[in-house]
Design a protein around this nucleic acid. Structure first.
Lengths: 207, 207
DNA sequence: TTTCATCTCAGCCAAAAGGTTGAGACGGTC
DNA sequence: GACCGTCTCAACCTTTTGGCTGAGATGAAA
C-alpha cells in the first residue's frame, strides 16, 4: 500500500526535484502538485493525499503555516510536513502549533526526506534533534506575544526609522512610540533598538 | 549540436529538479552535477561544459561568485549562469563582475531557465529588465567600497552591539568606533546605526 | 619623497534614545 | 462593578549616539 503525497511549493524546479527524488521510492506515490496554498487546499480535498509536503514560504497568497492550519481542519485531514530552506525558531514552533507533523530542511538528503514522509505517515513526529530541543524549549519558554501596535513599531524599527519617523508614520506621539519600544525591549529582553531588531529577526518575527 | 551543461547547487533536490526540467529540452545535455564550488571547478576541467548553471549560495566552501571567477579563469572557460533564490543588488553586480553571463531567479519558469541557457550559450547576456537596469545603475553608482575595519564594525553593528561593545570586541576605543561609523554612514548615505544596518542588508553587505 | 588611504584617538556639543513613573481612555471579561 | 490588557501620552533624567574638527602613525603607491 503506497503512501499518497501532495507536493506544495511555489518553485517549479523544486517541485520537479521532489517529484524526481521521491518517485524513486515505490512506497510513495505523488498524486499531485500545487504552487499556492489555495491550490493545495483545493487539491487536498479532491485527492485526499495521506501526506502533504508543504513549503513554508509560498510566494503570493496564504503562507505555509496558514495552509497547514486549513489542511488540518479538513474532513480527511492529511498529515502535513513542512519543508523549508531556513530554520527559524518561531517558524518551527508555529508549524507544529499549526498541526504539522514535522519540519524538514530543503538541503536534506533525498533519502531522509523520503524516510521522513514514511515516518510521518506512520504517525510519528518528524523533527531533527535540534528542532525537537527547540520546540520543547519553546514550550517551556513560550515566545512573547507582541501586540499589533508593537509589531507595527517593530516593522518600522527594522527599516532603521527613528522614534520621530515611527511616530509620524503611525500618527502617534514620540511618547507613545517610546512606550511601545519599552514594552518591546522587555518582551525581547534587550535594551537597544538595534538589539531588538536583531533579536526579532533571530526569532522570526521579521524577515 | 547539444549544449553541454554542468549543474552546481548544494541542494540535491534542486539539482534533481533542474535535471528533470532541463533534460526535457533536446538542445541541452546535462553532463554533470556538483554540490560545491571545489567540485564544480574539478568537474568543469574534466567535462568542459559549454555552460555552468551555478547557485550563488553553496553552503560550505567557496561561494558562487568565487566559483564563477575561477571557472572563468580556466583554459576552456565555460559560460556561467548564476542561479539564486533572492536578488540582491550587490550580488547581481558581483556576479556580472565575476564574469557571469547572467543571473536567474530560482522561481523562474522551467521554460525561461532553458531559454536563458540557450541564449547564454549563443553569447548573449541574460538579465531580466530590472536586473539590467540595476547593473547599469551600479556601473554609474558603484557600490561604496568598505574597508576591512568598517566591515568588522558593520558586522557587530548588525548584532545590535553598542559602540562600547564594538570597541571592546575590536580592542579599540569608542572614539575609533565612532570614527568608523561616521565613515560607514557617509558611504551608505544614512545617519543612524539602524539605517546603516538596514541599508547594508539591502545592498547585500551582510545577510 | 610626497601623496594618499587607513586606522587610530580626542574633545566638544546637540540630538536621540532609553529608564522610570504615572495616568487617562477604551474594550472585553469575570 | 471591578479587573485587565492595550493604546495613548507626559515629565524627568541619564546614557548613548552622531556631527564636527583635528591629528598622529603606518604603509602602500605614485
Amino acid at each position: 500500500m503506497s503512501i499518497t503525497v501532495l507536493l506544495v511549493d511555489d518553485h517549479p524546479v523544486v517541485r520537479s526535484g521532489l517529484r524526481a527524488v521521491l518517485s524513486a521510492h515505490p512506497s510513495l506515490t505523488i498524486v499531485g502538485e500545487a504552487a499556492t496554498g489555495e491550490e493545495a487546499l483545493s487539491l487536498a480535498q479532491h485527492l485526499t493525499p495521506a501526506v502533504v509536503l508543504c513549503d513554508l514560504r509560498l510566494g503570493d497568497g496564504i503562507d505555509g503555516i496558514e495552509t497547514t492550519k486549513q489542511l488540518r481542519a479538513l474532513d480527511d485531514a492529511p498529515i502535513v510536513l513542512m519543508l523549508t530552506t531556513f530554520d527559524r525558531d518561531a517558524e518551527v514552533i508555529g508549524a507544529i502549533e499549526a498541526g504539522a507533523a514535522g519540519y524538514l530542511l530543503k538541503d536534506a538528503e533525498p533519502e531522509s526526506i523520503a524516510e521522513a514522509i514514511e515516518r510521518a505517515a506512520r504517525g510519528e513526529i518528524v523533527l531533527s534533534p535540534e528542532h525537537a530541543t527547540r520546540v520543547l524549549h519553546g514550550v517551556r519558554n513560550p515566545p512573547p506575544k507582541l501586540t499589533e501596535r508593537e509589531i507595527d513599531v517593530l516593522a518600522l524599527l527594522a527599516t532603521g526609522a527613528t522614534n520621530r519617523e515611527i511616530a509620524k508614520a503611525l500618527f502617534v506621539t514620540e511618547a507613545t512610540v517610546k512606550s511601545h519600544l519599552s514594552h518591546l525591549f522587555t518582551k525581547l529582553q534587550v535594551d537597544t533598538r538595534s538589539k531588538a531588531v536583531h533579536e526579532a529577526r533571530a526569532r522570526g518575527f521579521i524577515d
